[in-house]
Design a protein around this nucleic acid. Structure first.
Lengths: 300, 300
DNA sequence: TCCCGTTGTTCAATCAATTTGAAATCATCT
DNA sequence: AGATGATTTCAAATTGATTGAACAACGGGA
């Protein structure tokens, strides 16, 4: 009972037999003598209490069980190999994984260039992607749940162990459903005009940091949604109004489902600065690599 | 280079060390002498060219790399163990996997009782679930892409190597969106009245067998959707009309989003018989087990 | 402070599992 | 029929894992 009957040697042996067609050829490939294979196989058959080959004919025939062991065993072999490599990378100073938190204002698309380069150049570090909203995104960084955040600068916590670097700006626009009563109005809208309609807001995912709410924050009825995709849909369906990132609603605007309006009362710069942020002090090869390729995250 | 530096022995050793806190205690647990552990570890360290333990203090401290090897290695160990078991089951006459194809008229829900019992009683056979529509579902059976189908009897291919057993009936009803012009009509609807509206149809997934289309097949504009969930949504949104399985639209009917109508011209029995079907001749323990528990699939 | 018990390592000796090689069997090809 | 090649059997050899005794380093308690 103590020992597992399936050994790495067995899987290797099966692999060689399949690749070379006969026990003899496989043995040669493994730099062994044929009888050594016989030994390995018979031992496994005895331990497993199953037949691996059907010896009734002269040439041994694979049993279903043996094929299965080979097929699944191959995965295990490569897992074992990968484990060796990743352990070596770890010892060289790479992290076991790296987490990037992306604010809901951006979408996964923005990470693609970096992720695909990482996959090529540093395939041994798995990169995890998380999403957060408003101060919640930054909280992931402080909590060590993320190693890098990509989020709007204005929500950045004011701590000196957090470093940031600007990545670009995105434009937030007031967008209404084509069916919205104000959709036809051909002029900047006032706060009073909008007051009757609920504001669609992404819930802040923060648990510790005081929650923020972005733009249009006059106290009014709010419609909370979990993410940007839902927010866009909600506004498209006319369930409320709110600011949306221009780059994520191109489609809808072109199709006419969403109509962009300006705000009469809005003094603020309509562009939001997006920054990358990380904890000062973390330093390992993974982080260094990311820092060297931050330009891939440039927004717009 | 030939050999993988990470051995099963190493993982087992690390596991014991973690569990028992010290090399000495781990050695005892493994029925070895402490120096044997030293040997295993030092050999691995030499092969991997990394440190597994930090010996600068007196009590050896885990390296990040060693923790990683243990953590990932555990999975590999259990995979190896499972592989042993599944190979034995295979040899005993169980299949390596079993595929059930479910017609889009039914939903995954119908399989839950059987799947959960299977998970308990025969956890070593992974059961795959596929979905198909109309004759496509049966085609999966003929193609050996599925070992069991659950589908409407009327689409059953007429071959004597296919066996079936009735599981029950489901009721198909004509359902319209609440916003549909005919939603108010308080009487059976005629073919002529419905003619102007597109029929929402699930595309037949069949590639070989001549395609079928279910119900309401007067030649009219059709709106093809990929699955039942989409069909229900499409009809709810008023994009078209069509027959829907009663049991899958309870919610929508209660909420008033869908309105049920009867068809004036429809002579047919409104209930569809659902059967389980399998290839005659396949016989193995998995199939026998499934046959013994067909009652769990009873519809309605 | 001085033991004593504990931890982990080193090294030569031992042990056992794996590997070998020679011989035997069977099937297929010429 | 003879030659070739595949596979197994068995005793002998080899290698790698395991042991045990001896040692060094630490830590806690008296």
């Amino acid at each position: 009972m103590a020992h597992n009957p399936i050994t790495v040697e067995l899987i290797r042996t099966l692999e060689a037999i399949e690749q070379h067609g006969s026990f003899a050829a496989a043995a040669e490939h493994l730099h062994k003598v044929p009888s050594a294979l016989t030994y390995t196989l018979q031992k496994a058959e005895k331990d497993l209490e199953i037949e691996l080959f059907d010896r009734s004919g002269h040439r041994a025939e694979w049993t279903e069980a043996a094929s299965h062991i080979l097929q699944e065993g191959r995965r295990i072999l490569t897992a074992l190999e990968n484990l060796g490599h990743s352990a070596q990378r770890l010892a060289e100073g790479w992290t076991a994984q790296y987490s990037v938190a992306l604010d809901h204002l951006l979408d996964f698309q923005h990470l693609v260039p970096m992720l695909s380069l990482a996959r090529q150049e540093i395939p041994w570090v798995p990169i995890h992607v998380k999403q957060g909203a408003l101060s919640g995104t930054w909280e992931l960084l402080l909590d060590h749940q993320a190693d890098l955040v990509i989020a709007p600068a204005h929500a950045r916590p004011d701590r000196d162990d957090i470093r940031t670097q600007p990545l670009g700006k995105i434009r937030m626009v007031l967008a209404l459903s084509r069916h919205h009563p104000l959709a036809e109005a051909d002029r900047p809208l006032t706060e009073e005009e909008l007051a009757p309609y609920p504001v669609v807001t992404i819930s802040d995912t923060a648990r510790q940091i005081p929650a923020l709410s972005a733009g249009l924050q006059w106290r009014r009825q709010r419609f909370l949604v979990p993410d940007m995709a839902t927010k866009i849909t909600a506004q498209k369906e006319g369930l409320g109004v709110g600011l949306l990132p221009m780059h994520r609603i191109q489609q809808e605007v072109l199709a006419g489902d969403l109509v962009i309006k300006s705000l009469a009362s809005d003094q603020r710069e309509p562009d939001i600065t997006i920054v990358a942020g990380w904890r000062q002090g973390d330093s390992d090869k993974t982080h260094d690599w990311i820092m060297e390729h931050l330009d891939l995250l440039a927004v717009n």
